[in-house]
């Protein structure tokens, strides 16, 4: 057996809570494969009854935005207040939205 890295790959863990609608990122862990990552996630992140569903994703498979692109990516939306739905009168009958 050659080509084994000493370190197991990193996995990101997402858990859907008892009442949550979507999975939330809760942390990361190391595991040799997806199945053992799932077991480790169960042991590390659901000990206190936190969740009803677990997703694990190998961290290397995640494409993340780069902090240095912050300007072009996000700043243009800062000055576009009209994209927020705050310019409408909401009839009282509608109640809380």
């Amino acid at each position: 057996m050659t080509g084994f890295s000493k370190q197991w790959p990193l996995w990101e863990v997402f858990i859907r809570g008892q009442h949550g609608l979507s999975h939330r990122h809760v942390g990361s862990l190391h595991a040799v494969d997806a199945e053992s990552a799932m077991k480790n996630a169960r042991d590390v992140y659901t000990r206190r009854n936190e969740g009803v569903s677990i997703w694990v994703v190998e961290a290397a498979q995640i494409t993340a935005s780069s902090p240095s692109d912050k300007g072009p990516l996000y700043e243009p939306s800062e000055s576009k207040v009209y994209r927020h739905p705050t310019f409408f009168e909401i009839p009282e009958e509608v109640g809380a939205m």
Binding site: L29, H30, V44
Partner: peptide, 11 residues
């Protein structure tokens, strides 16, 4: 040997 196994064994 690793943190994940440590927690699993303790559980």
């Amino acid at each position: 040997p690793v943190l994940e196994e440590d927690i699993a064994l303790a559980n």
